[in-house]
Design a protein around this nucleic acid. Structure first.
Lengths: 359, 359
DNA sequence: CTGAAAGCGCTTACAG
DNA sequence: CTGAAAGCGCTTACAG
């Protein structure tokens, strides 16, 4: 049975155990917390009582007295972070479970200073041991970090998916580098008019990918292509119209680096409508490596992004910080670098290469 | 500032407020909890002290004494439920936020009776107000519900994404009906060899979709097609091989109802390889309405499934149950039906219809 | 090794 | 309308 009840009809408490075992609550507590200083005999007796009473300590009471909740706050923005957030949850939940923490999920829609404070206060009031700030960086959504005394917070905080700032722990991808590598790949195919379809330009991720693309163009001696940029919204429907705009701007367009695989799907769709052969007339590559892009038509060259891994690393870093603050040793698995910047991996498929991969 | 400190250097407590205002803790508490029985004058004085001290009540202490945590436990299986779970989170987080609850996420990998009990005990120990059992039904993962005294749990529980059983609150989709409607659509196109590619057959969702497909075939006078079923794993890579199998089993195959949009993408890919025209030679339809399927090649006919909505409804039902147990009125928005069974919507696109939708 | 006391920060009866 | 006391179920010093 899940619930044992004592004579009073409530859950058994430590006091019940102590009474039954004929010891003090303190000693019973020692047994539960595996303290050394208990006779083997006493321990056995107490354990037996715990067993027969079906006693389990109240996590709440423990949290209140010990100041440790084994709960991590996750602040996200489900409405906007949608896909990436979903993938990130996978990694965080898995790792939290592994390290013995529960995740307390809260959502934010608005990023004013006062909203941020309300959110942090909520988490402080619930005494979470640490916080992962997981909403995507939109406009100045993360500006508060610049002048907020983050180190005065009662718990450590790790930011994911945002630009690095100051000495605030941040875990994310090197989107600048990713944009560069993607564009270099297109350059290596001897394309001379390499356009870009970006995500929303108020997103730091989108900005960094654009910057990487421009840097590679300059490096490759084609800085003039740097104007061939049209803004999308990450989703498939904006891919097609953006492609048409690019074609208008530059009829010789022979390659496009698309800021997300989803928009790239829209581009491939529109290219077909326009009678453009991919990759012969137009090389197309995406970024993110959605799990379906290998089956696009043609299969999409992209940059693989391991979002669950990123989230796992963020969680480990957070646990490391928690332990450090309390002067405890941290689990070996939490020995991650201080400011990990993950890299995407180039995945070449038919949409740029034009030959079938081996079956 | 987030943190105000009293002279002792800790967060101010109710006692600090009471002392400063020259009232009892009880009265201070009344002000915080908006009790009627306080003089306007006293209230003002206490509020002022709260303000200057920067006092905020400890959520933990309140939970311990009031027996209410405004936290909902969500038990999922991120590793397996991946996409659906991600979409469901979106709805749950949004609705929880709206109703003033936080979500405590826990993951399960294994579904033995003892694992289930450990999980429930964890949640009980943390005094969650209610639980959403969100892992997908795999094999006998939900068998424990058949003989578990769910009503003896200290909190209400709502199951999503699983077969309805007994008087346990369940929220989900009518996958049987969805399979039927999908197949009827193919029948209406005068297809005579309608195959099916299912999800993993140990999943109740996959089973129900198969059953719906068979029921429609029987109803349409083509029961013999009921053998044309090949099992996939929900993901794109299994779609192609499954299509080849079906073609071997029945060279006249002229339509296929695919158990997920992702597998359907694999099917479309393979159909191209095989030189089959879609929909002329083979009508293809999926189910789920992934956000990209409108841009497949050709755009995929599918059944729209509003997973976030399902999750929202589950959360509302749970909050309703919580309030009912405590004899409190529940928010108007929580007046959902007792056992909502959501329906998919048929979305006809080119992969079955063969004409371009209006632009 | 073990225990009596105080405390975590609130709320819930019970009085007045 | 207001308050003194007890209690929620533990843990943390402090003694012995």
């Amino acid at each position: 049975m899940t619930e044992q009840h004592n004579t009073k009809g409530r859950r058994p408490t430590l006091a019940d155990v102590a009474k039954m075992a004929g010891v003090s609550k303190q000693t019973a507590s020692r047994v539960i917390n595996r303290s050394e200083h208990v006779t083997e005999e006493t321990r056995a007796r107490v354990l037996k009582c715990i067993e027969t009473l079906g006693f389990r300590p109240s996590a709440l009471a423990r949290q209140l007295t010990s100041g440790r909740s084994y709960t991590l706050g996750v602040v996200s923005n489900a409405a906007i972070g949608y896909l990436t957030t979903g993938d990130a949850y996978t990694g965080m939940v898995r790792q939290a479970d592994h390290l013995g923490y529960a995740l307390l999920i809260k959502e934010m829609r608005e990023f004013s200073r006062s909203s941020v404070e309300i959110m942090l206060n909520h988490l402080i009031d619930r005494q979470v041991d640490g916080v992962i700030w997981a909403g995507p960086e939109i406009g100045d959504s993360h500006a508060w970090l610049d002048d907020y005394p983050v180190n005065d917070l009662p718990m450590p905080l790790v930011v994911i998916n945002a630009r690095k700032r100051g000495n605030i722990d941040t875990v994310g991808f090197d989107n600048f580098q990713a944009g560069k590598i993607a564009t270099r790949h297109l350059l290596s195919l001897h394309r001379h008019h390499i356009g870009h379809i970006s995500g929303p330009m108020d997103r730091s991720v989108a900005q960094q990918r654009v910057e990487g693309w421009r840097a590679a163009l300059a490096e490759g001696g084609q800085p003039e292509s740097g104007n061939l940029c049209v803004e999308g919204d990450w989703e498939a429907p904006t891919g097609g119209p953006a492609l048409r705009r690019l074609k208008e701007m530059c009829p010789e367009l022979d390659a496009v680096f698309v800021g997300s695989d989803r928009m790239a799907l829209g581009v491939l769709f529109e290219a077909r409508q326009m009678g453009l052969r991919v990759p012969e007339d137009l090389a197309v590559m995406g970024i993110d490596n959605d799990r379906q892009s290998a089956f696009f038509s043609p299969p999409l060259t992209t940059m693989h992004q391991d979002t669950p891994l990123m989230a796992e690393i963020a969680l480990r870093l957070l646990v490391r910080r928690i332990c450090e603050r309390r002067g405890e040793p941290y689990p070996e698995s939490c020995a991650v670098p201080e400011n990990p910047l993950l890299v995407h991996e180039l995945l070449v498929r038919q949409s740029t290469l034009g030959v079938m991969p081996m079956p």
